Computed example of a mutant assay.
Amino acid sequence: MNNSTKSNYNYPEIINRLEAKGIELYGNHFKIVETDHEIIYKLIAYFLKDEHACNQFNIHLEKGILLTGPIGCGKTSLMNLMKHTAPTGNKFSVKPCRDISFEFIQEGYPIIHKYSIGQLYHTEPRTYCFDDLGTENNLKYFGNECNVMAEILLSRYDLFISKKLKTHITTNLSATEIEKQYGNRVRSRLRQIVNLIAFDKSTPDKR
């Protein structure tokens, strides 16, 4: 991070704490490499609501996060670690898209409401990180095919407009691939509701 950035946070110290938490969660092999520090600085700035740093990184605090990168670069691990960084008002749940697709097979269309408007089980809309967008498939429920995540994301766009509800996403897909799989409407809505934070395509598999 640029030393001229005014911040009340010690980012290197926070990264050390995150690495220690990562070792606790994932084992002694876990390590935060220096080449990932800029990505992690951006995530820390966002989840701690560090306005000065976010302005430098062109991150809008009212939007969610779209974290993209190649397979194995650490997207899911980082978002799970950010749950331990985020203050109470910025909490979220990580939910694999494949799990949502399996729920849809079992329970049908109410699952779309569960992860969007929150009507299922009388729950309130929640902030989610939809993990590994693109790994789920279009599914059929009683013979009707449905692009489950496309419907959920479109509904959450409406919630962003009406209630400022945030949505976070991790994916291996490029913008073009997102449009191909979910349609131009979803791609357009995502531009409005998330900040793009992207690993370099050459980032090695850390697993």
Rank of each mutant, 00 (worst) to 15 (best):
E136A: 06
L120E: 08
E151C: 09
S116C: 03
K114V: 02
L153Q: 02
R156T: 11
V186M: 01
D131Q: 10
T127M: 07
G134T: 08
V194M: 06
K163V: 00
T167K: 01
T127S: 08
S162K: 15
N172A: 05
E145F: 10
I117D: 12
C129G: 02
I178C: 09
R156H: 04
R187I: 05
V186D: 00
R191K: 13
F199I: 04
I197K: 01
I178H: 05
G134S: 14
L190D: 01
S116G: 11
L196F: 15
Y141T: 06
E151N: 15
T135R: 13
T167L: 01
Y182C: 09
Y182E: 01
H113Y: 11
E124G: 04
V186Y: 03
G183T: 08
H168P: 04
L153G: 03
K201Q: 13
K163F: 01
K201W: 03
P125Y: 07
K180V: 07
V194S: 09
T123G: 05
F160T: 08
K166S: 02
C129D: 03
L159H: 10
I112D: 05
Q192T: 10
Q181E: 13
T167F: 01
S162V: 07
K180I: 12
R191L: 14
Q119P: 00
L165Q: 12
H168M: 13
L165W: 00
K163A: 14
T123V: 05
L153A: 09
N144S: 15
H113L: 11
V148D: 12
Y182H: 06
I169C: 08
N172Q: 12
R185S: 08
M149A: 06
S188H: 11
F130A: 11
K164F: 01
L165D: 00
F199C: 07
S155W: 04
G183Y: 06
I152V: 11
R187Y: 14
I178M: 12
L133Q: 05
T203Q: 09
D132C: 10
K164T: 11
D132R: 09
I152N: 02
Y182N: 00
D132P: 08
P125K: 03
F199R: 02
Y141E: 00
M149Q: 01
